[in-house]
Simulated scan of single mutants.
Amino acid sequence: MVNNKPIGIFDSGYGGLTVFRSIFKQLPQYDYIYLGDTARAPYGNRSFQTIHQYTWECVRWLLKQGCPLVILACNTASAKALRNIQQLDLKGQDPAKRVLGVIRPTAEVIGNYTKTKEIGVLGTKGTIQSESYKMEIGKFFPDVKVHQQACPLWVPLIENGEYDKPGANYFVKKYLDQVLAQSANIDTLLLACTHYPLIQQKIAAYLPANIKVVSQGDIVAHSLVDYLHRHSEMEKSISTGNTQRFFTTTDDTADFDHYGELFFGAKVQSGFAEIKC
């Protein structure tokens, strides 16, 4: 069965599959198409211009597949490309199509998790440098203090299958020590990268029992449920064939299928997506 009007989900690599897994669990009736730009991952240390270019090329590919709605299940892309795509790039497309990110839905609720009003945000260098979480959380929870920590080695460790090895422990503890050194009052840590749920248990093992670790999958899924409820015209435009298709920008899809299964929690069989500049 061919997806006529699927929901598009994009990430620079595999991480967005953790968000997709939560979305599919809550909204299994729709058609979906996932695109991971594994040929050019990771995005975390790239420039604003490059991240915007790569993200828009992938979003445009998903729009050409018939997607009326695209979710940027990537914090770096949401931080550095979403606004330009929404305000500028989409103007030349069908005005009814929409692109959403993962930062705003998370910022809208993260303040509800903390009792001390101090949280730590763990993310890629690009996400942290953008200050997007500080700005967005400040809009909804001006009384919450946000401490940020870039974790540049976590994504490479995860995407190279080294995250569960003993050698990864040093780098997990290193960045946790750095963020907790910023304040003794932090009681909530936000995993502001969709890759990080794969090391969530390892992260929790190095933390005091009073610190909560929050990942984004269920938050983004709940937000999408609410969005579709409030935008019935969009909800009606999405096809309901209960299908999922996966694509990668790497022509050898074997690695994507292997690691994709770890992130998605089910067997993944991907195809090659040729992204043209």
Rank of each mutant, 00 (worst) to 15 (best):
54 Y>S: 07
64 K>V: 01
206 Y>C: 13
276 K>F: 08
67 C>D: 07
204 A>T: 08
180 L>A: 09
89 D>I: 06
7 I>A: 00
69 L>S: 06
65 Q>P: 04
47 S>P: 13
65 Q>I: 05
52 H>N: 13
170 Y>W: 13
129 Q>V: 02
177 D>L: 09
220 V>K: 00
251 D>E: 11
186 I>M: 04
172 V>D: 02
23 I>E: 14
197 P>W: 05
215 S>P: 07
235 E>T: 13
39 A>N: 12
148 Q>N: 15
64 K>G: 15
141 F>G: 14
77 A>M: 04
13 G>P: 02
246 F>A: 01
174 K>G: 07
150 A>H: 07
46 R>E: 10
265 G>M: 02
262 L>D: 05
9 I>E: 00
82 L>H: 07
162 E>R: 12
28 P>Y: 00
171 F>A: 04
162 E>P: 01
268 V>C: 08
227 Y>V: 00
218 D>F: 02
28 P>N: 09
35 L>Q: 11
36 G>M: 02
105 P>F: 05
66 G>A: 02
106 T>K: 13
218 D>M: 08
139 K>P: 09
203 I>N: 05
190 L>T: 06
232 S>M: 06
45 N>K: 12
34 Y>F: 13
141 F>T: 09
122 L>Y: 12
235 E>C: 14
87 Q>M: 14
264 F>D: 06
175 Y>N: 07
169 N>C: 01
79 A>I: 03
239 S>W: 03
1 M>Y: 15
